[in-house]
Amino acid sequence: MTVDATDRRILKATASGLPLTPHPFEEVGRWLVLPENEVIARIQAMQDDGVIRRVALAPNHYTLGLAANGMSVWDLADDQAEKLGAEVGALPFVSHCYLRPRALPDWPYNLFAMLHGRSREEVEAKRSEVAALLDAACRSHDILYSTRILKKSGMRLAGEG
């Protein structure tokens, strides 16, 4: 879909969050001099097209106790990768889950799944759970723990400079 200039104004106005009032879309409309029903219709259209994944609250998984995470990686048989990837992605302790190309010979893994838990031990237990689910379709797997954030910059909106 094409996100037009008015859509961009809505995204920019809400980039740091929705206004915390009982009628947040009405308030966004007030900021942008747009009727509330147009704000809602535009956000709905962007959500239907996948530009907006959802309008929601983001729990801080660190402060809520999920302090440990690891990037688990799996070498899945190609003909089963789509189906099994969807099953792994549906697990409640898996956040980002992607199929990616292998980089042979350096890297045999084609499924990446970020696992979350309260501790390193819990993450390892989740990894065993995933391994049991994948069973014989998985030839090998590994998990990479991050030791340091080297850079973290906010994603810029394309066309925003």
Binding site: L11, L18, M46, R53, R54, L57, P59, L157
Partner: peptide, 8 residues
């Protein structure tokens, strides 16, 4: 919570 709003 870290954010409350649209996720792009």
């Amino acid at each position: 919570i870290t954010r409350f709003g649209p996720f792009l």
